[in-house]
Amino acid sequence: MIYVFLADGFEEIEALATIDVLRRAELDVTTVGVGGCRAVCGAHDIVVKADAVDTEVMYDDVEAVVLPGGALGTLNLEKSPVVQGFIDHAMSVDALVAAICAAPSILGHKGLLKGKEAICFPGFEQQLEGATLSEQSVATDGNIITAKGAGVAVDFGLAIVAYFKGEGRSEILRKSLQCP
């Protein structure tokens, strides 16, 4: 299962475009409301109904943890013990951890980007402790995918698709979405 964690203040484009791309690729995705909230309010006052709340999800079937950004959303993700536990578990079993915009800072603070190529929203680079900053808008290094921000949310989703289903499936989906 791919868990996309939604915390108050999440960047809507980063979350929803990613979820849409993953579901189009027929990947199993569950959106998770952080803090016990099923209705989560994004950075631009768009309320999204999560599939589950954080107290309902289990580590057993985690294939990926996806962290949308947004300044406030990132802070709320980082302070969640459930999100922290899922990141730790995912890393311990070599599951995918993907973060976009400000959210890669969470991985940097945990020391997970040491020696990894990573990217984030401009201004958060110093939070990517130990990472080599990528020149790309989306960076994949092992089981970690990071991305710059809302403008590359579809590419971020396609990188996750490529991780699970290969570059060929990702490119077919890219073409069907009319992405350059």
Rank of each mutant, 00 (worst) to 15 (best):
T18E: 06
D60G: 13
V21C: 02
H89N: 06
Q127I: 00
R23T: 12
K79N: 00
L128Y: 12
A7Y: 09
S176V: 10
V29Y: 09
A39D: 15
G85L: 02
A43Q: 13
C120K: 08
S92K: 14
L107E: 01
V161W: 05
V138L: 08
A43C: 08
V57H: 06
H109Y: 08
S137H: 13
K175S: 13
P122M: 08
G108E: 06
D141S: 14
V93E: 03
A7I: 04
V138D: 05
V152K: 00
V138Y: 11
I119Q: 01
L177N: 09
H44F: 15
S92G: 04
N76M: 07
A64T: 05
D88E: 15
A103M: 10
S137A: 11
K49I: 15
G111S: 05
T55I: 10
L96C: 04
K49E: 13
M58S: 15
A64N: 02
F86K: 03
Y163G: 00
I106F: 04
I160V: 03
G35W: 06
E12N: 11
N143I: 01
A162D: 14
S92A: 13
H44L: 14
A153H: 11
L72N: 12
Y59E: 13
I13F: 14
A150C: 11
V21F: 03
T146D: 02
V47E: 14
G168K: 15
R23H: 00
H89R: 12
P81G: 00
G70P: 09
V66E: 00
V83G: 01
I119A: 10
F156N: 03
L173K: 09
S92T: 10
D8A: 02
G166M: 10
N143Q: 12
A71R: 15
I19T: 04
Y163D: 01
L75K: 15
T55P: 00
I145K: 05
T30Q: 07
G9V: 05
S80C: 01
S176D: 14
G149W: 12
G35D: 04
E26Y: 10
A98Q: 07
A90W: 07
I119P: 00
T132F: 14
G151A: 13
D51L: 08
L77E: 01
A103E: 08
V161Q: 03
F86Y: 13
L133T: 06
G130D: 12
P180L: 13
C101E: 03
C179G: 00
A131S: 14
V34G: 02
R24E: 00
V154S: 01
V40D: 06
K165S: 12
R24Q: 03
I172T: 15
A131D: 08
Y163S: 01
G9Q: 09
T74N: 08
H44I: 12
L113K: 10
L96H: 06
A118L: 07
L72M: 15
L107D: 00
G115Y: 13
G85S: 15
P104W: 08
L113F: 10
H44Y: 15
A95G: 04
D61C: 11
L177H: 11
I2L: 07
L113Q: 10
L128K: 12
I106Y: 02
L158Y: 07
A7D: 02
